[in-house]
Each structure stands twice: as structure tokens, then as C-alpha cells.
Design a protein around this nucleic acid. Structure first.
Lengths: 195, 195
DNA sequence: GTCTATATAATGATAGAC
DNA sequence: GTCTATCATTATATAGAC
């Protein structure tokens, strides 16, 4: 099923995803992508008509990957409590990359949202994905109208942890903040009366 | 006392500060600075030998400005509680810029910390400034060993709020998160036994 | 210290032979 | 679909007359 061109295309997206994350979108040049992939310059333009289009493909891939992760959590964990904890545990498990390069979603959005960048609309979808999933968990906890606000609070807490851990390159700091976040979730569950 | 050249230099730093904040450092070109200041190309190089050097001057100015703010808070507010509230209130009062361009400290650090950028060492000092001041407040509340951890927690919460409000361009969201943060400070003060 | 002209390298993007 | 050569533009940075 997988054609030849598909592999090249996938290689480009994989490499670009990594470079955009570790260096930032703006700082990553076309030449960087050429060198990292080994794909010839003109050839990349055969698959994507611009650097922006590569970024869109990268965002689409991240969206697809995260949708799979969320689906796995839904299958693996039956309670909203366990699902929220899975979200927080992801932060802990990714602590190495988070401290070195920041959050792949947050740092990209922060870069693109400057001065109404067009592409930010696409990258915002990554936040929407988690916001909606988290909202569903809080609704399951009985929060109803408050649910989205709690979801955004949790997302924000996660972002804050990533920013500070990134700036200070401190994984232990991240771990400590993750513990606080777990405690907050426990409190929220107690308050919901669904403990 | 203020010489002619000082004004030109100040103009360059002021404009660059604004551009780096609203557009990001990487996305801001030398030409952008030339156009915004009206200072001739070669003339800018008379004051700064590189774009990086302009950024260092911008960071130094931000440091100086924030030191003044912190000093004012020290004078104006006599209790650590009031000082911490002043910090949180700053977020609320800057909500318009924060939702449009993100946090000037956080977004700059996020950009520069990618892949060990040299300049991040300078921008990190902006975080250190607030971290140390906040730590002093928590020490005054009797937290001692925990103080720095609480300071970084508070800084992280502030960063998370800025990221989410920026991504969603939502000032009301920011306001709601600020309220949560105020509640958290109240709790911390109660727990410290110094209420 | 002011201003013009230009150097030099890098950028994203194309054209077109194979 | 592969590969080379190159375009046009923009980037940061300099040289040097005034």
C-alpha cells in the first residue's frame, strides 16, 4: 500500500517535526530540512509547495498522533480520574524533552501567535484537542458548566510547568510541579462528590 | 546630561523592545528596526555591533524597568501578602498585551531556550529577578526551605495563564485564572500560619 | 555622529534536464 | 519521481564619504 513517494513525504514531515520542535519554526531553514532528510532541495518542493505547507503537515501529524494517544487513554482507563492522571503522567514521562525544548504544542503556538500569524489557527487545534478531551473528563466528574474552565486551567498549569522547566532546564522542578498537579486533581474529584 | 547619541540609542532599544515582543526576536529583521526608528542602517551599527547586541540591551532595559517595579511594590506594600497580590494584579492589568502577544519574559525565553541559544542566559535573568523577589515574600511568610519552590510555582502559574490567554486571545479567561491564583495565595498565607 | 552605497551570505522558491 | 543549477529576495553586516 505504501508507495515510494509516501516514504519520502513521511521522512520530510518527520524531520521537519523534529527540527521545528528543537529549533523553532522560524529558526529552521529549508537547508536544515534538506540536510536532515537527505532529500534534494527541489524534491521537497515536489511534495510541499512552501515551508508553511510543511508546517501544516507537521501539525496534522501531531494531531493524528495525539488523537491516538487520547483514544488509548480512553480504552486503558475507565474513570475520569485515571484519565486525568494519565494526562499529567505524560508530562512526567516526557520530562527530558520538555526541559530541553519546551512543550511542542505550547512553544509552537507561542511562536506562531505573535502578531496574528496565519498558521496559528492550525496549531491552536492542538490545544483544542486536549481542551475538549479534558473537558469531557470534567463533565464525567459532574462539573457540567465549569468543565471547560477546569480543562483550560489544567492545560494552563501544564503549560506553566513546561515553560519554567524549559527555562531552567530542570527536570526535578518539573517533577515537583507534576505532584502538585496530581494533588489538585485529587481535590477536584473530592469536590465533585464523585470520589 | 543626556547627549544626542543617547537619545538615538534609546530610540533603537525602545523600538526593538517593542518589535521583539510583538513579532518575536527571530522574525524581527534589521530592516524592521530601521523602519520603526527612522535611524539609518549604518547608524544602528554605530551603536550596536549586531542584532544580538541590541537584544542584550533590550533585556537589560527590561531588567532595569522590572527592578523599579519591584522596588515600588516593596515601598507601596508592607506585607508579603499585598506584595504577592501586586504581582498577580500586574497580570490582570497587562491583560490586553498578554492576550495579544503573550508574556514578554516567557515568550522571549521560550524562543531563546530552544536548542541552547546563547542569549537565553541573559533572558533567564528576567525570570531570576522575579523568582528571587517572590522567594523573599514566601520567606517572609515563614516558608523558609519551601519558599523558592513556591516562588517558581507561582511564576509557572503566571506563565501558564499567559500562554493559554495568548493562544486563545481571551482576556476573560485570563481574568478567571487570575482569580484562582489569588485564591491560591490566600490559602498559602493561611497555611503559613501568618494570617 | 550622519548618511549612502554595497558586500556577502542565507533565505525561500523555481526551472527544467533526466 | 530524481537531481542540478540557479533565481529573486532578504538577511546581517561593512566601508567610507561627509
Amino acid at each position: 500500500m505504501a508507495k515510494k513517494g509516501d516514504k519520502t513525504r513521511t521522512d520530510i514531515v518527520d524531520c521537519a517535526k523534529d527540527l521545528f520542535y528543537t529549533q523553532g519554526y522560524e529558526r529552521t531553514s529549508f537547508t536544515d530540512i534538506v540536510n536532515a532528510t537527505g532529500v534534494y532541495r527541489g524534491n521537497i518542493y515536489h511534495y510541499f509547495k512552501s515551508k508553511e505547507e510543511i508546517l501544516e503537515a507537521v501539525i496534522d501529524q501531531r494531531l493524528a498522533e495525539f488523537r491516538i494517544v487520547l483514544k488509548q487513554w480512553d480504552v486503558r482507563h475507565s474513570t475520569p480520574r485515571a484519565r486525568l492522571m494519565a494526562f499529567v503522567q505524560m508530562i512526567a514521562s516526557k520530562r527530558k524533552d520538555l526541559t530541553r525544548y519546551g512543550c511542542p504544542i505550547g512553544s509552537l503556538n507561542t511562536e506562531l501567535a505573535k502578531d496574528q500569524h496565519d498558521l496559528q489557527q492550525s496549531s491552536k487545534a492542538l490545544f483544542d484537542l486536549f481542551r475538549d478531551w479534558l473537558t469531557a473528563q470534567f463533565i464525567a466528574l459532574g462539573y457540567a458548566a465549569e468543565a471547560e474552565s477546569l480543562a483550560l486551567h489544567l492545560l494552563g498549569r501544564a503549560q506553566g510547568i513546561a515553560v519554567i522547566a524549559h527555562v531552567y532546564g530542570d527536570a526535578a522542578l518539573l517533577q515537583g510541579e507534576v505532584s502538585r498537579l496530581e494533588a489538585w486533581i485529587e481535590e477536584s474529584i473530592v469536590q465533585s462528590g464523585l470520589s
